[in-house]
Design a protein around this nucleic acid. Structure first.
Length: 571
RNA sequence: GCCUCUGUAGCUCAACGGAGAGAGCACUGGUCUUCGGAACCAGGGAUGGGGGUUCGAUUCCCUCCAGAGGCACCA
């Protein structure tokens, strides 16, 4: 990459001036500051001013550095700028070549895939709880997790998605107790019914705290292999999984594995963790429970409860042991809400103490929660927001909008567009901003059709495609003698695409990609507004603009697909 | 009480320690001999308070204030 070349050459020039600090490059905010900039002279000045008193300020040093720089292929201009930056302009023919490289899509993908070749990442995401409806929080995990998965995959990593279903634990003891005490027929179970039972259980506990004991007792019996308990548990899992599958189909999401927590019970992985812990003398008895003390944490990690039943934490440790043995991952990423930060801190420390994996290879992406303007959505307060409601409202609005489309769409096409717009909007709402922040749920925002939104990107793509279906397919183009501002602005955006993908992946920040796509779309729309593409007297110009349109649509398509959003040919 | 996250324009959000702090929505005024107006252009407006580190702080440190989340037998 040219950025590395600039860094290398500039660092060498810097050394010849007597300062050994690496050259950091960034993209300046303003176009008149070039395509890359470095603050190297500002950093170097304080070190150098003692030895070189003739340098009175960082700008002098910047000027000196530009003089020392040999020509760099692809760089057309280097300038020193106050208070002490060096700016680099890329040559238009270099920019054109980079754009053309993207159009050779297969080769472009191969180039990207070299970046992470040979590395493996396990991504733990979505993870809805059996016997509860698919809430908007799990939707967020699903959307972000899938985007991270797609990013790493595009960059050549071997990616393993695991939907760590919440299908084991004390809540099943509670449900089994409720189902038995209310004599609910198992063939009549629905997710709604289960959720109702769960809420009712909490109401009853409020009056009679001893009921918690009943829940724990039934979970322990489930773990001890009680046949009746197991039969009821299986029925719960069956209805829930059918429901989740339906939702994943709606969302267009497919996760490689859905082993679930129960897998680690049935396969005996939890026992192995306990054995490992004993062998390493990490287990302690505390208030009747088995716990591990962890360095730097006051609260010990509980592996086994005082009644002998297993904990969430033990299952997470078993999961790590399993994943390490099966896939040998370089990285395990957990896309789980930020309220579990302490839990994962415990898990990661414990896994390291057990010798399974280094803490540095474990990442918890704690996304912020989605809350209403008034506060948190809460199952117990009956203030939940079901995904289904959100999707239905999105579809309703999108259908209204599609009705007014000037395009000649068949009813089936209209429905497909409405779905892509509604689902795309919902996903984009989760991906458009930094993930650790809370999101204030807002219908107008989640289903926005203007501005920084999925439909805006889909629309821009459709516009571009519409031109391309009328023009010739161009794979490359010649640079016109003079580029106008809008053409140049587009060319100066394309080469950044791979950089954006890399930083979005390495910083687990899908919003970097979302913002880049939006900026690209804005530039294309301005270009589109001011200039015609087709039917120009200057045919070479038409060819060149077709090329720009083509590159724009390819990036938009790849980018949207990576975010899990469907691009639309017409809408 | 302790720990973590978040305070940026009327609202919702950006900004590896760098150059007039950028967008979207809303508001006001404009653009069309249209390859798709779900578009484009222009305008006003912002870093919670106080210290500190630095040539330079929205960013790092301290403190106060405000909001959210968490603090072993739910997951």
């Amino acid at each position: 990459m040219i950025s590395e070349e600039i860094q290398r050459v500039a660092a060498a020039a810097g050394r010849s001036l007597g300062v050994k600090i690496p050259v950091q490059l960034d993209h300046p905010d303003r176009p008149d500051h070039g395509d890359y900039a470095t603050n190297w002279p500002l950093l170097a000045f304080s070190r150098l001013k003692k030895q070189r008193p003739e340098l009175t300020n960082p700008l002098d040093l910047a000027k000196l550095l530009t003089l020392k720089l040999p020509p760099i292929k692809g760089v057309t201009r280097v300038t020193a700028a106050p208070p002490g930056f060096v700016n680099f302009w890329l040559a238009p023919d270099y920019l054109l070549a980079q754009a053309a490289a993207i159009l050779d899509e297969e080769k472009f993908r191969q180039q990207l895939a070299k970046i992470g070749h040979g590395k493996t990442v396990v991504i733990d995401y979505s993870a809805p709880n059996i016997a509860k409806s698919f809430g908007i929080g799990h939707l967020r995990s699903t959307n972000i997790g899938q985007a991270i998965y797609n990013l790493y995959r595009l960059l050549g990593w071997r990616t393993i998605g695991d939907n760590h279903l919440g299908d084991w634990g004390t809540q099943f003891g509670r449900l089994i107790y409720m189902i038995k005490s209310k004599k609910v027929p198992l063939d009549k179970l629905t997710v709604a019914k289960l959720e109702e039972l769960y809420v009712e259980f909490h109401h009853r506990v409020a009056k009679n705290p001893r009921l918690e004991e009943e829940g724990r007792r039934w979970f322990r019996r489930l773990e001890e292999g009680d046949r009746e308990a197991k039969r009821i548990w299986q029925a719960c899992v069956r209805v829930s999984r059918a429901e989740f599958d339906r939702i994943y189909r709606l969302l267009g999401v497919k996760i490689d594995y859905a082993l679930g927590e129960s897998y680690y019970y049935f396969q005996g992985w939890m026992d192995q963790v306990l054995t490992d812990a004993r062998r390493r003398r990490l287990l302690q008895k505390s208030r009747g429970a088995l716990v591990m003390k962890l360095p730097g944490l006051e609260v010990p990690a509980m592996l086994v409860k005082s009644d002998g039943a297993t904990t969430y934490l033990l299952r997470d440790l078993a999961t790590i042991k399993f994943r390490v043995q099966k896939w040998h991952p370089d990285l395990i990423v957990y896309e789980v809400g930020g309220e579990q930060r302490l839990h994962f801190q415990q898990v990661f420390l414990a896994a390291e103490q057990l010798g399974y994996i280094s803490r540095r290879q474990l990442v918890h992406l704690g996304h912020g929660l989605i809350r209403s303007r008034r506060g948190k959505f809460s199952t117990r307060q009956g203030r939940t927001l079901h995904l289904e409601e959100v999707i239905n409202e999105g579809l309703r609005r999108a259908r209204q909008l599609v009705k007014r489309s000037g395009q000649n769409l068949s009813p089936a096409e209209k429905e497909a567009v409405a779905q892509a717009v509604a689902i795309g909007g919902i996903k984009f709402n989760d991906l458009k901003q930094e993930i650790q922040r809370d999101i204030v749920f807002d219908w107008e925002k989640i289903l926005a059709i203007e501005g920084y939104s999925a439909p805006y990107l889909q629309y821009t793509y459709a516009r571009g495609r519409s031109i391309l279906t009328r023009g010739d397919v161009v794979k490359t183009a010649r640079l016109p003698a003079r580029l106008n501002g809008e053409e140049l602005a587009l060319l100066r955006t394309y080469y950044q695409f791979p950089e954006v993908l890399i930083s979005a992946a390495s910083q687990f920040a899908p919003h970097f990609l979302a913002q880049y796509l939006f900026q690209l779309a804005q530039k294309f729309n301005l270009f589109y507004q001011k200039h015609r593409v087709l039917g120009l007297a200057d045919q070479k110009r038409t060819q060149f603009r077709l090329f720009l349109t083509q590159v724009t649509t390819v990036i938009l398509r790849l980018g949207l697909e990576t975010l899990g959003i469907q691009p639309l040919e017409k809408m």
